[in-house]
Design a protein around this nucleic acid. Structure first.
Lengths: 393, 393
DNA sequence: GGGTATATGTTTCCTGCGGGAACATTTTAC
DNA sequence: GTAAAATGTTCCCGCAGGAAACATATACCC
């Protein structure tokens, strides 16, 4: 490798990836694809970058970078601008920026509302539509809303090129993304949501769990930016959603049900949870309880203690570099920050517990849209030349 | 890619890997390295394979496979044999097998004994030395033993070529493998064990946590062979060691302390643990307690219930395809198999809980040697042409 | 204002790798 | 003994990135 990064690579404690390699040959053109991907990914996450920076970051030759950037420009994915004044000596390097007319759509069906956004490849939310609903939407409702909102948004943006649509669903999604297995608050069970959306919208569609999408967004443009080992807890009306990034890989599990930290047992003699067990985190700390305790310091302390216990347990399993709290857990952390941090430190059994940063998630109301769009952009980022875009009518 | 495998690749829910790619260019010769690695890895895990099988598995051209295998043979890593009688029509394909004189050393310092083995690249344990000790060995003891035993083993094997030495340490190891941060039962703290071993033995040395090494071995040649999402629990005199494979990646954590499932809180009103918390799994279920309960059915039932609760919690977090139990937890599972499985099913909150296989680990007394040797082989497997072997004097 | 140093873009040529086709080899089937 | 099938081998091609020479655009110095 041209230069060492701090990144864990495949052999380094990653046995399975090594065996996987055995099942794949590598052709010459994979190299090209990989490098196009590397450049588009770099400007996607890193914002506008000069060709010179790309050359340094990738270790590739100037001439190679030139050819790659030209190809990305011809594909309509990036634009090259003349450099701004830098004050540095030497010929100014051209600035490569992602084209903002390349967008992904993001859909978030929730109990009380349907929301769709168009997110540019630079992470900006360009347009959004929201519809409040009085009863939880059916899958058909969500598809109809998505179809209508996608048309409006495309008109508003004047002919964007669309990489696809990502949907963030509050519930269990099968590991292949095809089936919403169980979204209890929506009342969806065994719904082929991906296929329904894809057929209606005539776009590539990816469906995933909302917590995973949230963490993805925070990793991409939020509070966990670039941190590869992260635990994420989101408190919402539908309970506590969890997700984790393990060495740069999203924890999904064998069937797609990984990261359900809301059903981690915290009090063995606690209240019975809807899942059948006792003392699950989301049974012990939830929105109604926190609302009721808004002005009860002792109760809030108790909930903070419970949250700290959950975090300590998760640190014990994952040893994350950061723990991200969103939703009402972020709110609880805001009002009991010192207590939570102190109790986590006290409960941690390992050395250097103070190294773990506990933080509130950053992206607020855009989080799920950004995360779902990120997911929709993924195929394009991996294979810029081989992934067609859909031009909105 | 030439053909789809069932493997999660980088973009598929793995945001960080995508960004990582941005930091790396790919040179043309990476392709060669990748393909050499793929072939050596395939015969390492898959045993002897014909060239024709390699051609099919990798999707590479016959001529390319020919060149790659020739290079591996010139490097002294594989041998080509004439085919056995197959009964099939057509010219018989040559059989490629790893050379058994290519070995890795594996060291396991434990409270009551020091052990070193030589493991061939096909996974066979060729030789071993063991020394019982009355008091826990110091790092210096372990280094001295390793030096002596390595000499003996090399002599016995008549000039093996050594890829390196892997050490499996019962304790916390820093993420870079340099420092044994805390091995309580050995009494080691902040020991630069890797460097000490490397200087004494003049070999590449890798140090890791014993549970990680154990899971690695089971994944390579044992009960978790090829399963990419696995939770592993090992009960030993030093407590409960845990490890997990997440989408083919070893869970390590930001500082190397991940997977400490022995300190997962199981009974919030349980006994106080040495880590300062209450009701940790290893405080609730441990060797002394199980020994005392050997003929007490009710007590065994209780421990089985506790184990099931821990497994249910881990399933909730990891959604593994398999849960592997080793050491005394394997023993407990053997005598309470039905109960454990039934309770795990009852406690699981997700659908299809019966899909998760709970099994006893398979490799027995060779596990840590095989796992540590696997770890030592990793650099060679990743870069066969660029990783020098040490010829034993 | 002009020359020089510096950094970058561009062009040209080279090397290395895998693919493919033709040919050689070794087996089974009839 | 001949044909068919599968595989190994050889030779040549295309494509990707690297290196060096050259072109270009800036800052700095006088």
């Amino acid at each position: 490798m041209p230069e060492a990064t701090g990144i864990t690579d495949a052999t380094d404690e990653s046995p399975a990836e090594a065996r996987v390699a055995a099942a794949r040959g590598s052709r010459n053109d994979h190299t090209r694809r990989h490098n196009l991907s590397a450049l588009l990914t770099a400007v996607h996450y890193g914002g506008p970058l000069t060709r010179a920076q790309l050359t340094r970051d990738t270790g590739l030759n100037r001439s190679t970078i030139g050819g790659l950037v030209t190809e990305l420009a011809e594909l309509g994915l990036v634009i090259e601008d003349a450099a701004a004044e830098t004050g540095a000596v030497g010929r100014p390097s051209l600035i490569v920026r992602p084209r903002r007319d390349v967008v992904a759509l993001a859909l978030h069906p929730d109990v009380d509302a349907l929301e769709l956004g168009a997110v540019a490849i630079d992470g900006t939310v360009l347009a959004r539509r929201r519809a409040s609903v009085s009863a939880p939407p059916t899958p058909a409702d969500a598809v109809a809303f998505a179809w209508e909102a996608a048309r409006e948004v495309a008109a508003e943006l004047d002919g964007p090129r669309i990489a696809g649509l990502g949907a963030a669903v509050p519930g269990l999604v099968s590991v292949d993304g095809e089936v919403v297995v169980d979204a209890p608050h929506l009342g969806w069970r065994e719904v082929s949501f991906r296929e329904q959306l894809a057929e209606a919208l005539e776009l590539p569609v990816t469906v995933g769990n909302d917590a995973n999408m949230g963490l993805r967004a925070e990793w991409s443009f939020g509070a966990a930016r670039g941190i590869d080992t992260v635990v994420y807890l989101n408190g919402s009306a539908s309970g506590i959603g969890g997700a984790a990034l393990v060495g740069g890989r999203m924890l999904r599990g064998g069937r797609g049900y990984g990261g359900e930290f809301g059903h981690m047992m915290i009090r063995s003699n606690g209240e019975r949870c809807s899942c059948g067990r006792r003392g699950c985190l989301e049974t012990e700390v939830n929105a109604p309880r926190l609302d009721a305790a808004a002005h009860d310091d002792a109760a809030l302390d108790g909930y903070a203690e419970t949250l700290a216990l959950a975090i300590a347990n998760l640190e014990c399993a994952f040893d994350p570099d950061a723990v991200l709290l969103a939703g009402y857990l972020g709110g609880l952390f805001d009002v009991r920050r010192e207590l939570v941090q102190q109790r986590v430190r006290a409960l941690a059994f390992r050395p250097d517990a103070e190294d773990v940063a506990i933080a509130r998630a950053a992206l607020g109301g855009n989080r799920l849209l950004i995360g779902a769009a990120e997911r929709a952009f993924a195929p394009l980022l991996q294979d810029p030349a081989g992934t067609p875009l859909t031009v909105a009518a």
